[in-house]
Design a protein around this nucleic acid. Structure first.
Lengths: 140, 140
DNA sequence: CTAATTCCTCTAGCGACTAGAGGATCAAGA
DNA sequence: TCTTGATCCTCTAGTCGCTAGAGGAATTAG
């Protein structure tokens, strides 16, 4: 059972140009071609691309995925490195959540203090400017 | 009181090439030059750049900042648009936090199930490979 | 006077795609 | 068989918000 790049795209929900891009950067092996130079794929292509897609959805970077793929192809080796990649990714996500949460609080406070009047009384602009006062003459 | 781009950089914690980049894209007005073609700045430059830096730290995009700056220069107008930009940014941040939180749970579960043995028994690899029909979209 | 630092412009690179041009080929209907 | 429209190909360039480096001029410190 073989199919075209379009069909692979439909089966994996990865866009056609993205598949070609993955091939170009070596994340996917160069697909075999028909007589008329069209790429074709089989089940292995679907599996590999699904692996990549799901890893991307989980926020792994391309280079991480390269390593994960390489390791998934050596099933007898230790999965210590897999675990370590996943763990440092988790730490990074925690860091991002914390940072976004702080940010959200600051934004929310800023917005709640906005009197919805004129710009010169707007707390949002004030906070961004880092200078409490807002004069009629423009200072920024 | 005037100072060089390097001094402006020190006062605002924005790197020199970034300042030049902001000028290039029109986020900062073209700075006046000395006889030897060097940019110089005054307090207004510091204020504007601090406003930009703080907005960036809060995750606003350059185009948002353009609008915020434009509005801060019209202090008599309504701050409704300021409020609306800040609000949609807040919504976006909420969305990102939610998405990262889901992601974190999935990653954590995956990691906790990894037996730290061989790759062929590794749940991390399995989960990444198996999730053929998960269509959640995480853009970070 | 020299050496280090700062400044200038310009181009190119990052990550992970996405868009579009310009052309070839395929599948389905009339 | 012809035609139409979908799909495929390669290639280049654009996105965002910077960052890095080359190559050269000017300033500043010792």
């Amino acid at each position: 059972m073989v199919f075209s790049i379009g069909e692979l795209s439909r089966r994996t929900a990865v866009k056609v140009p993205t598949i070609r891009y993955y091939e170009q950067i070596g994340l996917l092996p160069a697909a075999p071609r028909t007589d008329s130079n069209r790429r074709f794929y089989g089940q292995a292509g679907v599996d590999r691309l699904n692996f990549i897609r799901h890893s991307r959805e989980l926020g792994f970077e391309i280079d991480d995925i390269r390593e994960l793929l390489a390791m998934s192809e050596q099933p007898q080796s230790s999965c210590h490195k897999v675990d370590s990649i996943a763990n440092s990714h988790l730490v990074e996500i925690d860091r991002r959540i914390a940072s976004l949460t702080t940010l959200k609080a600051e934004l929310a406070r800023m917005i709640s203090e906005c009197g919805r009047g004129r710009v010169c009384d707007c707390r949002i602009i004030e906070v961004l400017a880092d200078h409490g006062q807002c004069r009629s003459e423009h200072r920024l």
